[in-house]
Simulated scan of single mutants.
Amino acid sequence: MNNSEFCNIKSYKLSPSSKRSMNELSNVIDIGNYAATFTAAMPIVRIFTDRNATNTIHNISQHDWIEFANAMNSIKDVVRTRGYNIADEAALFGSTQDKEFWRCMKNALR
Protein backbone atom coordinates (compact mmCIF):
# COMPACT_ATOMS: atom_id res chain seq x y z
CA MET A 1 0.00 0.00 0.00
CA ASN A 2 1.45 3.38 -0.92
CA ASN A 3 1.27 6.45 1.32
CA SER A 4 -1.49 8.13 -0.67
CA GLU A 5 -3.77 5.14 0.08
CA PHE A 6 -2.55 4.89 3.68
CA CYS A 7 -3.25 8.59 4.27
CA ASN A 8 -6.52 8.72 2.36
CA ILE A 9 -8.89 11.22 3.94
CA LYS A 10 -12.50 10.88 2.81
CA SER A 11 -13.43 13.32 0.03
CA TYR A 12 -10.08 15.10 0.36
CA LYS A 13 -8.73 16.78 -2.72
CA LEU A 14 -5.21 18.17 -2.73
CA SER A 15 -5.08 21.94 -2.48
CA PRO A 16 -2.72 23.83 -4.83
CA SER A 17 -0.12 24.10 -2.06
CA SER A 18 -0.44 20.38 -1.29
CA LYS A 19 -0.02 19.59 -4.99
CA ARG A 20 3.21 21.60 -4.95
CA SER A 21 4.38 19.71 -1.86
CA MET A 22 3.44 16.39 -3.47
CA ASN A 23 5.40 17.34 -6.61
CA GLU A 24 8.37 18.33 -4.46
CA LEU A 25 8.15 14.98 -2.65
CA SER A 26 7.98 13.17 -5.98
CA ASN A 27 11.08 15.04 -7.20
CA VAL A 28 13.01 14.10 -4.04
CA ILE A 29 12.09 10.45 -4.57
CA ASP A 30 13.15 10.61 -8.23
CA ILE A 31 16.51 12.17 -7.35
CA GLY A 32 17.01 9.55 -4.64
CA ASN A 33 16.34 6.79 -7.18
CA TYR A 34 18.84 8.31 -9.61
CA ALA A 35 21.44 8.63 -6.85
CA ALA A 36 20.92 5.00 -5.81
CA THR A 37 21.21 3.83 -9.42
CA PHE A 38 24.46 5.72 -10.01
CA THR A 39 25.88 4.63 -6.66
CA ALA A 40 25.06 1.00 -7.44
CA ALA A 41 26.59 1.27 -10.91
CA MET A 42 29.95 2.60 -9.73
CA PRO A 43 31.35 -0.64 -8.27
CA ILE A 44 30.13 -2.61 -11.29
CA VAL A 45 31.99 -0.30 -13.65
CA ARG A 46 35.09 -0.28 -11.44
CA ILE A 47 35.18 -4.04 -10.97
CA PHE A 48 34.38 -5.18 -14.50
CA THR A 49 36.35 -2.66 -16.58
CA ASP A 50 39.33 -4.98 -16.52
CA ARG A 51 38.64 -7.93 -18.82
CA ASN A 52 41.13 -10.19 -17.11
CA ALA A 53 39.21 -12.72 -14.94
CA THR A 54 41.92 -12.84 -12.28
CA ASN A 55 41.91 -9.06 -11.92
CA THR A 56 38.10 -9.02 -11.80
CA ILE A 57 38.06 -11.53 -8.95
CA HIS A 58 40.71 -9.47 -7.15
CA ASN A 59 38.68 -6.28 -7.71
CA ILE A 60 35.55 -7.93 -6.27
CA SER A 61 37.38 -9.10 -3.17
CA GLN A 62 39.13 -5.76 -2.64
CA HIS A 63 36.07 -3.55 -3.05
CA ASP A 64 34.89 -1.92 0.18
CA TRP A 65 31.41 -3.46 0.37
CA ILE A 66 30.71 -2.04 3.82
CA GLU A 67 31.28 1.48 2.52
CA PHE A 68 29.08 0.67 -0.46
CA ALA A 69 26.26 -0.50 1.86
CA ASN A 70 26.65 2.63 3.97
CA ALA A 71 26.39 4.82 0.87
CA MET A 72 23.24 3.05 -0.29
CA ASN A 73 21.66 3.33 3.16
CA SER A 74 22.52 7.00 3.44
CA ILE A 75 20.62 7.75 0.22
CA LYS A 76 17.52 6.15 1.72
CA ASP A 77 17.97 8.13 4.94
CA VAL A 78 18.41 11.44 3.11
CA VAL A 79 15.30 10.87 0.96
CA ARG A 80 13.22 9.88 3.99
CA THR A 81 14.41 12.90 6.02
CA ARG A 82 13.78 15.29 3.15
CA GLY A 83 10.32 13.77 2.62
CA TYR A 84 9.55 14.13 6.31
CA ASN A 85 10.60 17.80 6.18
CA ILE A 86 8.34 18.44 3.19
CA ALA A 87 5.39 16.79 4.96
CA ASP A 88 6.14 18.69 8.17
CA GLU A 89 6.16 22.03 6.36
CA ALA A 90 2.97 21.19 4.45
CA ALA A 91 1.23 20.15 7.71
CA LEU A 92 2.32 23.35 9.39
CA PHE A 93 1.01 25.72 6.72
CA GLY A 94 -1.91 23.75 5.25
CA SER A 95 -5.65 24.04 5.67
CA THR A 96 -7.49 21.71 8.09
CA GLN A 97 -7.75 18.74 5.70
CA ASP A 98 -4.26 19.43 4.36
CA LYS A 99 -2.89 19.32 7.90
CA GLU A 100 -4.57 16.00 8.60
CA PHE A 101 -3.28 14.46 5.38
CA TRP A 102 0.29 15.75 5.80
CA ARG A 103 0.44 14.70 9.48
CA CYS A 104 -0.38 11.19 8.31
CA MET A 105 2.35 11.45 5.66
CA LYS A 106 4.80 12.61 8.35
CA ASN A 107 3.97 9.55 10.44
CA ALA A 108 4.43 7.31 7.41
CA LEU A 109 7.84 8.86 6.73
CA ARG A 110 9.23 8.42 10.26
Score class of each variant (00 low, 15 high):
13 K>Y: 05
69 A>L: 12
12 Y>F: 14
29 I>N: 03
99 K>P: 01
20 R>G: 00
100 E>F: 01
22 M>R: 14
65 W>S: 11
79 V>R: 02
68 F>E: 11
84 Y>G: 00
61 S>H: 13
15 S>N: 01
68 F>I: 05
109 L>S: 12
80 R>L: 07
98 D>E: 10
16 P>M: 05
83 G>Y: 01
75 I>N: 03
38 F>L: 12
77 D>G: 07
48 F>K: 08
104 C>T: 03
26 S>Y: 01
10 K>C: 08
74 S>A: 10
87 A>N: 07
94 G>T: 03
65 W>L: 07
6 F>C: 02
7 C>N: 06
27 N>T: 06
97 Q>Y: 09
40 A>R: 14
23 N>E: 05
35 A>N: 11
52 N>I: 05
60 I>V: 15
87 A>D: 02
48 F>C: 11
14 L>K: 11
72 M>K: 13
34 Y>T: 08
88 D>W: 06
75 I>M: 06
49 T>Y: 13
32 G>W: 04
39 T>L: 06
68 F>S: 12
42 M>E: 12
98 D>L: 05
58 H>E: 09
81 T>G: 02
101 F>W: 09
78 V>K: 11
66 I>V: 02
63 H>C: 03
1 M>W: 08
59 N>K: 11
54 T>S: 11
10 K>W: 08
18 S>W: 04
107 N>Q: 12
86 I>Q: 03
64 D>P: 00
48 F>L: 14
13 K>A: 10
2 N>H: 03
99 K>W: 00
26 S>P: 00
33 N>Y: 12
74 S>I: 02
57 I>W: 05
94 G>I: 01
76 K>H: 11
75 I>S: 04
12 Y>R: 13
80 R>Y: 03
61 S>E: 15
27 N>F: 00
108 A>Q: 08
102 W>V: 02
17 S>W: 07
34 Y>E: 09
35 A>F: 01
57 I>P: 00
57 I>Q: 10
3 N>I: 12
64 D>T: 04
18 S>F: 00
46 R>Y: 05
104 C>F: 08
96 T>F: 10
57 I>K: 13
88 D>E: 09
33 N>V: 02
93 F>G: 01
76 K>Y: 11
100 E>W: 01
33 N>Q: 14
41 A>W: 05
81 T>Q: 14
14 L>S: 12
75 I>D: 04
88 D>V: 00
